[in-house]
């Protein structure tokens, strides 16, 4: 069965930024997520270019989506435009970080 973008985002809530302790969806890092006939496509960013967790987070996204969807072809497209802004965070994320 084809997963909806909402479903994929729900799955991605299991991927945490290990330093911030907030999942990547609530951090506003996931720009686009969709299932295509032969793959799952995720377009995302990080809070800063040159983040030391770059490879770790991509690996986690691939692992979680493969586990949940059964699909082995996962493409993670890391982009830097538009640049991530703190305003992209959900209210829950802002609360966890003490955002003010």
């Amino acid at each position: 069965m084809e997963a909806s973008p909402m479903q994929i985002r729900d799955w991605l809530k299991e991927v945490y930024d290990p330093e911030l302790g907030v999942n990547i969806v609530d951090l506003g890092l996931v720009y686009e997520a969709r299932q295509e006939p032969d793959r799952i496509y995720v377009q995302m960013t990080l809070t800063t270019p040159g983040c030391p967790l770059h490879d770790t987070i991509i690996g986690s996204v691939k692992w979680v989506l493969a586990e949940k969807s059964g699909q082995s072809n996962i493409e993670v497209d890391m982009v830097w435009e538009p640049q991530w802004k703190p305003s992209m965070m959900s209210e829950e994320a802002k609360q966890v970080l003490g955002y003010f």
């Binding site: 299991e14 991927v15 945490y16 290990p18 330093e19 302790g21 030391p52 967790l53 490879d55 770790t56 987070i57 690996g59 986690s60 996204v61 692992w63 979680v64």
Partner: peptide
């Protein structure tokens, strides 16, 4: 902690029970 976490848990991120760096 960053160095050790990435080495020890880097491939387990997202899996249940994986600790945070904190």
């Amino acid at each position: 902690p960053f160095l050790w976490w990435t080495y020890r848990y880097g491939k387990q991120a997202g899996k249940p029970g994986t600790p945070l760096m904190a």
